[in-house]
Amino acid sequence: MLPIEFYFDAAIKGLLTGSVYAMLAVGLSIIFGVMRVVNFAHGEMLVAGMFGAYLVFVTLGLDPILAIPIVALVMFLFGVALQRGLIDRFITAPEHQQFLVLIGVALILTNGLDMIFGPDARNVQVPYAFASFEVGPFFLDNVRVYSAIAALALIALLYLFFNHTLTGKAIRACADNNRGAQVVGLNVSRLYAITFGIGAACAGAAGCLLIMVIDVTPHLGADFTLLAFTIVIIGGLGSMTGALLGGLLIGVSEAMAGILIQPSLKSSFSFGLLILVLLLRPNGLLGKRSS
């Protein structure tokens, strides 16, 4: 390959992985945008999704992409139950209390998975794991391409949900003006439960897509929480397009950093970017400017 093609290759791989990151980040962004709660257990929910897809694969032999409806539904119900049973009581509580609640949930999820699956890395080998498309000088892994397409399709689906269904619009109304939503008679608590469920389902779906690319262990969660958080801040909290843009940006920057400088320095790239964005555009690249 020519040197320039080498960079292109990395950028394309970054974009593909970034789409899955975006799927994860959209969930975090929706939850924060609507409920003003930072889901500090988001990465752990992703890991739960990965194990879910693994379980479906070893028991039913189902491809992780086809497992998405099952895993997402389970995660949705989990999210709804969590919001109903626990988080709802802390909606108006100080930030540090919400933080503690979700750290507690994260601990329980991580170590629950550890107790069930053990600390060893697990992976899913789909039949097309080593196949790739040849596009000009580039070889694109099938798994990456399929997972990126699935991620983008799901994000598009969410976009349609929030813009063209009554429930979706109602949730957006809640996000814009909580008090107003209550005044016009929306059941805010129910909408919050749905929102948290959707957020968890996003993490679960992203887990299904990610398991095809990387191995899973129970303790991966915290890193992905941080990753999702970084993406969302870079893109702009509460903005779906922002999360998409942030995901792609982080995916590409990680991939580029991996070949330009040492791979171990790649996340310093994301954090550097994060610091810059926070300082220069605290509301994110696509965030709404508040006066």
Binding site: I103, L107, I108, D114
Partner: peptide, 13 residues
């Protein structure tokens, strides 16, 4: 394995 931190999380909650 994991029992300690799981219980820890439950206690915190």
């Amino acid at each position: 394995a994991g029992l300690k931190l799981l219980t820890y999380g439950v206690a915190m909650l």
